[in-house]
Amino acid sequence: MQPGNPNTRGGYDYEGRTVPGDGMPDRAFGSLLGEFFDQGKRLISAEITLAKTELSQEMTKFKAGGAMVGVGGVLLLIGGIAFMLFACAALALVMPFWAAALIVTVLFLAIGAGVAFAGIKRIKEFHAPTKTIQTLKEDGQWASRTFQSVKSQMHGHA
């Protein structure tokens, strides 16, 4: 009986005939480990790119919500000023001017509050990068399985 060729996965049967393997030469542990770390680096780079994309999309929503809150705040300020005009006019001259000031005040306060609440609602829609978190979990599982496979190959050939 001839010994199997150590550079292939095939070998010889008990009568000396060649037994085919998968045609791939056994790779050294260092080579497998190097490939594992190279793939890990590429994976981390892809995850960082995905996280940046997701966060960029969420920041766009956040900025729009912040702008709406700002506009709402300005309108509330104008409403407050109009309310002061109303109070002054109502106390000083009990005339129709105060009715106009009251209508303007209520209108500005209603519009300002509506815009501010819409902005707050938009800000609350800000989410963590869920796709990135999920793929990071999957990547961790892949890395663990791959490392265990490399480790078992090393122990199997020792």
Rank of each mutant, 00 (worst) to 15 (best):
P20W: 00
S31N: 08
L76I: 07
L76S: 08
M24W: 07
E54G: 12
K131G: 03
E47H: 08
K41N: 08
G114C: 09
V106Y: 06
R145E: 14
L102H: 01
T60R: 15
M1G: 09
W142F: 12
F29I: 05
E54I: 13
T130K: 14
G16E: 07
L93V: 07
I120T: 12
E15Y: 12
H157Y: 05
G10C: 04
L77M: 08
M84G: 13
Q57Y: 06
A46T: 06
A158L: 10
A82K: 03
H127P: 00
E47W: 00
A64S: 10
M68W: 01
M59I: 11
P6Y: 03
F62T: 10
A67Q: 07
L91Q: 06
K151E: 13
I123Q: 13
M154R: 15
E15M: 10
T53N: 12
H155F: 12
D13W: 03
Q134E: 14
W98G: 10
G40C: 03
I120E: 09
W98L: 01
G73R: 05
Q2P: 10
A143H: 06
I123L: 15
V74A: 13
I133R: 11
Q2L: 11
P129L: 01
V74K: 05
H155E: 13
K63G: 01
E54L: 11
K63E: 13
L76G: 10
H127M: 09
F62H: 11
A89Q: 11
L76T: 02
H155R: 14
R42V: 01
F62K: 13
G30Q: 11
A158G: 12
A90H: 12
F86P: 01
P3C: 09
A89C: 06
N7L: 13
T18M: 05
S149P: 01
I111C: 05
L109V: 13
T132K: 06
A51R: 15
Q141L: 10
M59C: 02
G34M: 05
A67S: 09
A99Q: 07
F108A: 14
F37N: 05
I123W: 01
K52F: 03
A143N: 04
V19R: 11
Y12A: 02
P96E: 09
F108C: 14
G4R: 14
R42K: 11
F126W: 10
V150F: 07
G70F: 04
E47Y: 02
L109M: 14
E15V: 08
L109Y: 04
G34H: 09
E15P: 00
I103K: 10
F147R: 15
A99N: 03
A87T: 09
S31Q: 15
G16R: 04
I133P: 02
G30F: 02
A28C: 02
I103M: 12
A51C: 10
T53W: 03
H127L: 09
I48S: 07
D22G: 08
A99E: 02
L109P: 00
H155V: 07
L77D: 02
I103N: 01
S149V: 06
E15R: 15
F86D: 02
L77R: 00
G70V: 00
R42L: 07
V74M: 07
L76N: 08
G4N: 13
M95K: 08
R122Q: 15
F36V: 03
S31G: 05
R42E: 09
A89H: 02
Q141G: 01
L77T: 10
N5K: 03
A87N: 04
G80Q: 01
A99F: 10
K52Q: 14
R145S: 12
G16L: 07
